[in-house]
């Protein structure tokens, strides 16, 4: 069952600067929604509103009918950087995701989350002993450990090398397919959005507004080289880099 996420006239201003909206959007049956847009268009502002890290200037975000008023246990966030606490080992970092959950089952949930990202052997390692990809997997485990209804991914692969990025994309696809009702992926990588998403929103801005809303009905697993994939890619590229703007 996917969660229903609703944005209603969602608006964010920083002083006199209009950063976002008003945005209206309903995410229902899609498991993965990709949000793509150029740098500075307001993607991260949107993510912070969804995560409850910032308050909206007007309008609201709702998850299954409840207004998001602050960080919640049922919303997991993975940032561009792993953002692990360097003094806590892998297990304790993952444990931060459920510190306020009932004690019964907490340890088991942590063990399961670490196992899910394939780091059981590193449960007692410190972050400085991990590679970039491993550290990001710990960040994913920390977001998953509380069994969130909504998983927010803020360019989670952007800081990784290309090979690690491809491997982790497949890994995340595997996880969201089984463990998470709804995932919102924020990215500026068209391929990434197309491989992972059921629906892609193109944002323009600031202030961020929806320029295009596309359902990606490509069969899974997706081939990055199929003609249909190429057609979607051309469509998105056209949306993001209008021909008229290219004056090379």
């Amino acid at each position: 069952m996917s969660a229903v996420i609703e944005l209603e006239h969602l608006t964010k201003r920083f002083g006199a600067f209009d950063a976002l909206g008003p945005l209206d959007l309903r995410i229902g049956t899609e498991r993965v929604l990709g949000i793509i847009g150029p740098s500075g268009c307001g993607k991260t502002t949107l993510l912070r509103l969804l995560a409850g890290l910032d308050a909206a200037s007007a309008g609201a975000v709702r998850i299954d009918g409840e207004t998001i008023g602050g960080p919640r246990p049922d919303i997991g966030v993975v940032f561009q950087e792993p953002r692990l606490m360097p003094w806590l080992n892998v297990r304790d970092n993952v444990g931060l995701g459920v510190w306020d959950a009932p004690a019964a089952g907490r340890e088991r949930a942590i063990t399961a989350a670490i196992e899910r990202v394939g780091l059981t052997a590193f449960a007692h390692a410190l972050p400085r002993q991990l590679s970039g990809g491993m550290a990001q997997r710990v960040g994913i485990a920390r977001a998953l450990v509380g069994s969130p209804r909504l998983l927010l991914l803020d360019e989670p692969f952007a800081a990784l090398d290309p090979l690690t990025r491809l491997a982790l994309q497949d890994h995340v696809l595997d996880i969201v397919g089984t463990a998470v009702p709804t995932t919102i992926l924020i990215t500026h990588d068209i391929d990434e959005a197309l491989v992972l998403s059921d629906r892609v929103i193109v944002l323009h801005g600031p202030p961020a507004r929806i320029a295009r809303d596309i359902t990606i009905d490509l069969p899974r697993p997706r081939s990055r080289t199929s003609p249909a994939f190429g057609a979607f890619k051309a469509m998105l590229l056209d949306e993001l880099v209008p021909r008229s703007a290219v004056t090379l």
């Binding site: 995560a51 890290l53 960080p71 919640r72 246990p73 966030v77 940032f79 950087e81 953002r83 606490m85 931060l96 995701g97 510190w99 306020d100 920390r142």
Partner: peptide, 12 residues
């Protein structure tokens, strides 16, 4: 600040 923000996501 990024670590504090991560901590806020986890309601610390």
């Amino acid at each position: 600040r990024k670590l504090i923000e991560a901590a806020r996501v986890y309601r610390l």
